[in-house]
Design a protein around this nucleic acid. Structure first.
Lengths: 342, 342
DNA sequence: GCAATGACCGAAAAGGTTTTCGGACCTTTC
DNA sequence: GAAAGGTCCGAAAACCTTTTCGGTCATTGC
């Protein structure tokens, strides 16, 4: 089990080396290794043995050069730090990694120049396709360059309707959230959200209001737009309690906001979930499970979104390219903060 | 400004196409595009024009095949979800992306089989080097395969001393944290940390105790090891206050733990920072800035660590391979929870 | 006018793999 | 014993770029 010391400088074995050692031609060696027929079983055995002995691994460059396909894709994200890109990237890496595809990761830092630079580099490396991951759900301009490989936009849809985009269904997510609260017996529901500039915030609010209307209810007060921060949640909850003391549920635009809301409720002596149910968005584990009580939240299924994007890219590479904006459904993760009715 | 529609199916232009259009040979075209001399200025101009017209981009595969270098590196992480891998990856991507290097991202999910699979794939793609990012600072076994390219281990050092590893200096970080608290006028300092199985926890505690001793002080109570969770922070802080009511500072093993400690202190009526100063580790922005008061924390400079790993890999590719465990310094980020003495 | 020099360009090989097609050898059948 | 057929193997082309080296042409100095 001794780890073979890395033979630095030793040129990697080529197919010729294997062929020579096995006493056959490179053509035969290639066929033997790739399971092609018209190779005698015994010959194949000799070749496999030689390959193993030289720990031969075929040069993907040469293979890709010949095949016109590299088995690589580019994953272009606009902000890697953002916590939304990552799970998407995970899911994509997952879907690809299972096959024979390797992923080039590029972070454009929200800079258009850098983005073009990366796209050029990826095209020069002859990737078979591109996934462009946005940092918010707001539509983004399509890639600036003419790209002769399929592109799938994930999370942030492309502004060009002929492009293929895959995004979370935030409208329906808002609907599902409210339906959950109603199922918990709540009727006086308020909505404290984040930045109004984000379509995610507006979509969720729209879905929530639609669900309330469908149930013959309406929102307690207006949608409180603000910032995606705990501090805003604390402040907004204070104002809400002053104005609407009989509220019995607060749907929050994010888990961060929800944490702030929870803090204020606790300080004001409201019990959660007995007096007021609280619900967040994003299902950010560390925030949701660290809360008291643990926070019910809507999960955007971002990993699934990443996998869906990868699958869509696969299809686009093989067959024809899809179009339009497709959605991935969200799901409600129930925890203590909305425990069914008191 | 019309975006050229992606010419799907149109084979990308090759150097021959450019040469033909410019009326020269491929050799001349190559020289012209690469700025080699012995090309007439006028000829070069024609070639450049032709290349632009065909939006020619050289095939990196062919180039890499010839040069024996691909300008790619593999980034092998063991858990992408973990919040420590990401900044490292960012830093590395940053350092590489600035040059001509593209990054293959692979997530092994902490699975040795998957890791070997990924390593094989990367070697087959003839990466020029590998960075292996661990998920905790505990040493990890070296790569199982014989690898003929340089490898740098980041965050988690390799167990093999002849490998090159780059890790945060947690011992010194503990020291710096305590020195900061002492500088704030605190003398009765407790330490609530996370899981004892993590060398990061033990190293930080060791550094903290060393700094206390150097100042003629000692820890209030024992190091309280537990879990990296808010709940543990809340519970441990309760026990601490029961046993050591006159504590005036709590150094926490992570920001999550610190959030829990802050909650308990607030509930017990202790003012932060006036009565008790609180300090976290990791400088996890969303937790640190969302806290009341905002949390002083130790930042591990993970992005810098990633950049350092990339630089080390660069050097190893060009020159000779370094060895041993190198450290990157942490830094204290001061916020309200340790505002200087009341 | 001729030789030497220098400037510029093109042919060809190399890099490693896959695939096609022709050829060699062995077996079978009349 | 010869032809036909089948099985297996190898030569060579193709993918695209870079670099080396030899060749062509014009210019210059005598």
């Amino acid at each position: 089990m001794a780890r073979t010391p890395a033979p630095r400088g030793t040129r990697a074995a080529t197919l010729s080396d294997v062929a020579r050692l096995a006493g056959v031609s490179v053509a035969t060696a290639s066929k033997a290794l790739n399971g092609r027929n018209h190779v005698h079983a015994q010959t194949r055995e000799r070749v496999l043995e030689a390959a193993a002995q030289l720990s031969f691994s075929p040069n993907s460059l040469a293979r890709g050069l010949l095949a016109g396909r590299t088995g690589t894709v580019g994953l272009l994200t606009s902000d890697l730090v953002g916590r939304f890109s990552l799970p998407i990237l995970m899911g994509a890496e997952d879907a690809f990694g299972a096959g024979q595809v390797s992923v080039f990761l590029c972070d454009a830092r929200g800079d258009a120049i850098r983005e073009r630079h990366h796209v050029q580099a990826l095209l020069s490396r002859r990737v078979d396709g591109l996934i462009v991951v946005g940092s918010s759900t707001n539509p983004r301009p399509p890639l600036a360059d003419a790209v002769d490989v399929p592109v799938v936009y994930a999370y942030a849809p492309s502004e060009a309707p002929e492009d293929l985009s895959i995004v979370p269904d935030n409208v329906n997510a808002g609907r599902m959230a409210v339906e959950h609260l109603i199922a918990c017996g709540r009727t006086r529901i308020a909505h404290i959200s984040g930045d109004r500039e984000y379509s995610a915030a507006r979509d969720r609010a729209a879905g929530a209001e639609a669900a309330l209307e469908a149930a013959g209810l309406s929102l307690v007060g207006e949608v409180a737009y603000g910032a995606w921060e705990e501090g805003w949640g604390r402040a907004a909850a204070g104002m809400l309690l002053d104005r609407e003391p009989d509220v019995d549920a607060v749907l929050c635009g994010s888990d961060q906001v929800a944490r702030g809301v929870l803090d204020t409720l606790r300080e004001r002596g409201r019990r959660v979930p007995e007096d007021v149910a609280v619900m967040g968005f994003d299902n950010w584990d560390v925030l949701a499970t660290g809360a008291r009580p643990q926070l019910t939240s809507v999960d955007m299924n971002l990993e699934e979104l990443g996998r869906a994007a990868a699958r869509a890219l696969f299809e686009a590479i093989d067959d024809e390219h899809g179009r339009g904006v497709h959605t991935v459904q969200c799901r409600v993760v129930v925890r203590g903060s909305t425990a069914s009715a008191g």
